[in-house]
C-alpha cells in the first residue's frame, strides 16, 4: 500500500515528506489502544453474562478489565511521546501549528467548513493537517488527557499504595470527591471516540476521493502528494 517512491509526481502534485516516524507510530498506537479501550470500556459499562460455572474457573470480566488497563498504559506512553513531539517535531506536528490560536486560522477553519458543506471546484490539499482537522486532533488529544486523568483516578482508587492513593485523591478532587461522578464522565469518552472515529474515517476517505492525494499511505510511509503552489503558499 505504501507509496512507490519511484513515483515522485502525479498530476501536478509533488511528493513531500510530512509525517516523521514518531507521529506515524504514535498515530497507529493511538488507533490500537483507543479501539481496545472502546471495546473493553463498553463491556465494562455493559458486561455480558459469562457462564454459570464455578467462579473460580472463570476470569472473563477480570480479563476484560486487564485489557482495558493494559491498553490504558499504552495510551499513556503514546500520549506522553506525542506531547513531547509537539514541541520538537517538524512544523506539521507542532502544537504551535495545531492550536487554533490566530484569527487567520479560525477564518481558514470557517472557509473549510463552507467548502465541505458546499463542495465545488478544486479541493485544496494541505501539506500537514487541514485547519479543521487540526481543531479535531487537538480535541482528541484533550479527550485522551481526560481519559487518562479520569481513568487513573478510578484505577488508583483500587490500588492501595501511597502513590495511587495520592493520584486518586488528586483526581477525585477534580470530580467533587465522588468516584461515581468520575465513572459517569469517563463513560462519555466511549461515545466521543466512536463519533470521532466515524467522522475521521469519512473525512480521510473523502479527502482521498476528491483530491487524489494519498492519506492512509501517508500515515504509514510519511509521504504525501501536495500541489506545488500550496507548498510555496504555506512556506510564506
Amino acid at each position: 500500500m505504501a507509496v512507490a517512491t519511484a513515483e515522485k509526481r502525479r498530476e501536478g502534485m509533488i511528493l513531500v515528506k510530512v509525517w516523521e516516524p514518531t507521529v506515524r507510530v504514535t498515530h497507529w498506537l493511538l488507533f490500537l489502544s483507543i479501539t481496545t479501550l472502546c471495546i473493553t470500556g463498553y463491556l465494562i459499562g455493559n458486561p455480558t453474562f459469562s457462564s454459570p460455572q464455578e467462579a473460580a474457573k472463570t476470569f472473563t470480566f477480570g480479563t476484560i478489565r486487564f485489557l482495558h488497563f493494559a491498553a490504558a498504559y499504552v495510551l499513556l506512553a503514546t500520549f506522553l511521546i506525542r506531547l513531547y513531539w509537539g514541541f520538537v517535531g517538524n512544523r506539521y506536528a507542532r502544537w504551535s501549528t495545531l492550536l487554533p490560536i490566530t484569527g487567520k486560522r479560525w477564518r481558514a477553519i470557517w472557509k473549510e467548513v463552507l467548502d465541505l458543506a458546499l463542495p465545488k471546484g478544486k479541493f485544496r490539499v494541505y501539506t500537514g493537517h487541514s485547519p479543521l482537522a487540526n481543531v479535531f486532533y487537538v480535541l482528541v488529544y484533550l479527550a485522551v488527557l481526560f481519559s487518562l486523568v479520569s481513568g487513573f483516578t478510578m484505577y488508583g482508587a483500587a490500588h492501595y499504595t501511597p502513590f495511587w492513593r495520592t493520584i486518586s485523591a488528586w483526581g477525585l478532587a477534580l470530580f467533587g470527591n465522588n468516584l461515581n461522578t468520575v465513572h459517569f464522565w469517563h463513560h462519555w469518552l466511549l461515545w466521543f471516540f466512536i463519533l470521532f472515529f466515524l467522522m475521521h474515517l469519512y473525512l480521510v476517505i473523502y479527502t482521498i476521493v476528491v483530491s487524489r492525494t494519498t492519506e492512509i499511505d501517508t500515515m504509514i510511509s510519511g509521504y504525501k502528494f501536495v500541489v506545488e503552489e500550496t507548498l510555496s503558499e504555506e512556506a510564506e
Binding site: 458486561p47 467462579a55 476470569f59 470480566f61 477480570g62 476484560i64 492501595y160
Partner: peptide, 27 residues
Amino acid sequence: GKRIHDTCERRPHFDAGQFALSFDDFG
C-alpha cells in the same frame, strides 16, 4: 481504607463476569 468492592464476598463473581440481571433471577 478500602472500597466495599475490594472486600466484597461476591467479588469472585464480578471477576468471573457472573451477574444477577434482575432481583430473584438465577444469578
